[in-house]
Amino acid sequence: MLGKIFGILCLVALVFGGICGNMTDVANAIPDGAARAVEVTISLCGMMCLWCGLMEVLADAGVIRRLSRLLSPFLRRFFPNAYRTGEGAEEISAAISANLLGIGNAATPLALRAMEQMQKHNPDPTRADGEQITLAVLNTASVTLIPANLLALRRAAGSSDPFAIMIPVWLTSCLCAAMALLLTSIPRFFSKKGRRTQKRK
């Protein structure tokens, strides 16, 4: 997919550069862009090391486990099947906790294991189950308490107060997560109702 994105961007750049007569700018942008990539990586690298290190300590100290225990009473409402059968329940709350702490590389394997576990109770294995959809959509709107990478990039770009965005970020991401839960619950609510009336017939 990245190859396609690269190809499309380059083609569009070539066509517009030709039309607008900006071909020298386009040519200059190539070495500049490559150099910028190194600059961005360097400004991210220190923070990535620090933050991944800190989070590994928290994970080893059992913070993910404790956080996921705190979250389970709330998550139980949205994943009733997973919690009733116990298949994937632990992984779901651990994945969401890892996301909350910003440990993305721990969250993805956990979430994939949860998907696998939930697949055991999926009546049609080629069709996504309601709870699987809720998990996937919720993780695309994941709430992160401290977006460390973003803060490093803002600082590197010369922001006078890179931390100023923290509260708007918390508000927005909490609302987005709530939206994700709400939107994915609507079809599930109706399909449950539909199934019940069918049974009565």
Binding site: L2, I5, F6, C10, V15, D25, I30, A37, C49
Partner: peptide, 22 residues
């Protein structure tokens, strides 16, 4: 972050070209 660099080089170049082309 080291693994990020090769992908980032390609995409930074593409985005920079796109911006420069108008």
């Amino acid at each position: 972050s080291v693994n990020l660099l090769p992908t980032l080089v390609a995409l930074m170049v593409a985005v920079a070209m796109l911006n420069a082309s108008g």
